[in-house]
Design a protein around this nucleic acid. Structure first.
Length: 207
DNA sequence: TGCCAGGCCCTCTTTAGGGCCTT
């Protein structure tokens, strides 16, 4: 049951690779809870995936095998994370990726979630159609959000995604003179053809 | 050690192919 449709969990996984179907596992989860546009909670934990991470992943994330040796196993961390997200809608940058890992890790422990997933990448492609790139880091630069550039850790990336999300909401509000943008509208926006986004939001604006 | 996937989106499209994005 959704507690509050406008309280969101914005999350980011670091993983051993790209595909849980190929045996990849989560190694870190970071998430931010936002209520009424304000951060009211955070979650970040490393987790031991039961295998070693490659040199590429250690370089990419800064998460080493030594760091993971001390971490709780995925199963234990994901129980805590399942509690954290219960009752809230979810957002991630390129959500199809994070959703695959969330679903895979929660299925392993017999847990689930009831929120709906929206994707800041799909929204950004519609709201900032002229951006040269829709990578998270590039969008942070494009929107002039201050950043020290320390990407690819789970909490940092979820904080940056949160800032981007809030900037996109403000951009929609000011561009279309809207007081409030409900989450279900964003779910529909993310599926609207790019060419039709302006028409879609103007229709909503007119009620 | 090196490799792997999948959804979205565009176009020289839909009987397909390739770039973008995520680790």
């Amino acid at each position: 049951m959704i507690v509050n449709a406008d309280t969101l969990i914005i999350l980011d996984f670091e993983t051993t690779g790209l595909s849980p179907d190929m045996g990849d596992r989560a190694i870190e989860i970071g998430a931010v809870k936002i209520e009424n546009g304000k951060i009211t909670g955070r979650f970040q934990e490393l987790m031991h995936p039961g295998r070693r991470v490659s040199g590429f992943i250690a370089d990419y994330t800064g998460i080493t095998n030594t760091m993971l040796e001390k971490a709780a196993p995925c199963e234990e961390v994901m129980h805590r994370f399942a509690d954290f997200i219960q009752g809230y809608n979810l957002v991630a940058h390129n959500a199809s990726f994070d959703k695959r890992f969330l679903d895979a890790e929660l299925t392993r422990i017999g847990r689930g979630y009831d929120g709906e997933f929206s994707c800041s990448l799909l929204v950004a492609r519609r709201i900032f159609q002229d951006a040269p790139s829709h990578k998270l880091g590039e969008l942070i630069n494009y929107t002039n959000i201050p950043s020290d550039g320390g990407f690819h850790r789970a909490l940092f990336d979820s904080e940056m995604t949160t800032k981007l999300w809030l900037v996109m909401l403000e951009e929609m509000k000011s561009r279309y003179n809207l007081a409030y943008i409900p989450f279900p509208l964003i779910l529909k926006l993310a599926k609207t053809p790019k060419k039709s986004v302006d028409t879609f939001l103007r229709r909503y604006q007119q009620g």
